[in-house]
Amino acid sequence: MKELLMTTYTISLPIILGYIVWILKEQKKSRDANCEGTKCLLRVKLIEYHDRYMMEKSIPSYALDNWVEMYSAYEGLGGNGMVKGMNEEIHRLPIK
C-alpha cells in the first residue's frame, strides 16, 4: 500500500506542479497586459492635460492634483520618456 501511495505521489506531483506553474504564467500575462494598457491610458491622459494647460499657460489646482496622481501611477508602472519632461513643464505653470 505504501509503495502504491509513493508511486501515485511521484507521478501526480509533477503534473500538479506543472499545472500550477502554467496557471501562474497565464495570470502573469494577463497582469502584464493590464499594466501596459493602464500605462497607455495614463500616458494619453497626461498628454491631453499637458497640451491643454500649456496652451492655457496656467493650471487649476485640482488639475495639478490629478496630474500628480496620474503621473505617480504612470511612473509606478514603469512609464517614463517624454512624459517626464512634460511633468517638469506642468510644474512650472502658474496655478490659477
Rank of each mutant, 00 (worst) to 15 (best):
I16G: 05
A33W: 07
V83E: 08
M70D: 12
Y19T: 09
T7Q: 13
S30A: 11
V21G: 08
E89C: 05
G37A: 11
P14T: 04
M6Q: 15
I23Q: 14
A73W: 06
P60I: 03
L24V: 09
L64Y: 07
M1T: 14
Q27F: 12
K45G: 07
S58K: 12
M70H: 11
P94S: 01
G81I: 05
A63S: 07
L77Q: 06
I90E: 00
N80D: 15
Y49I: 15
I95R: 02
Q27G: 10
V44R: 09
W67P: 08
K45W: 09
S30K: 15
A73C: 11
E56P: 04
L41P: 11
Y49L: 15
S72Y: 01
W22Y: 14
H50I: 04
I95K: 00
M54D: 12
E89F: 02
L64C: 04
T10A: 12
N80W: 00
M70Y: 09
L4P: 07
W22M: 11
L41V: 14
P94L: 03
I15D: 03
W22L: 12
V68C: 08
S72K: 11
T10V: 06
I23H: 09
D32V: 06
Y71H: 02
L13A: 12
E48Y: 04
Y74L: 02
Q27K: 13
S58A: 08
M82Y: 13
Y19F: 08
Y71P: 07
V44A: 07
K84Y: 05
E88F: 04
S30G: 13
R43P: 06
S12R: 09
G85Y: 02
R43W: 06
I20G: 01
L4N: 10
L17M: 11
E26N: 14
S58W: 00
I47L: 15
R92G: 10
D32Y: 05
L13C: 10
I23G: 06
G81R: 01
I59R: 00
N66L: 00
E69C: 06
I90D: 04
I59W: 04
I90R: 01
T10D: 13
Y53C: 00
S72H: 05
V68T: 13
M1Q: 12
Y74N: 04
N34H: 11
P60C: 00
L77H: 01
L5K: 14
C35G: 13
T38C: 05
I16H: 01
W67Q: 04
L41T: 15
L41C: 08
R52Y: 06
A73P: 08
E88N: 09
P94V: 00
M54C: 07
A33V: 15
P14Q: 00
I95E: 07
I59L: 02
S72W: 00
I59E: 04
K57H: 07
S30Q: 15
K45L: 05
G81L: 05
M86P: 09
M1R: 10
W67R: 02
R43F: 02
I47G: 01
M70G: 04
R92F: 00
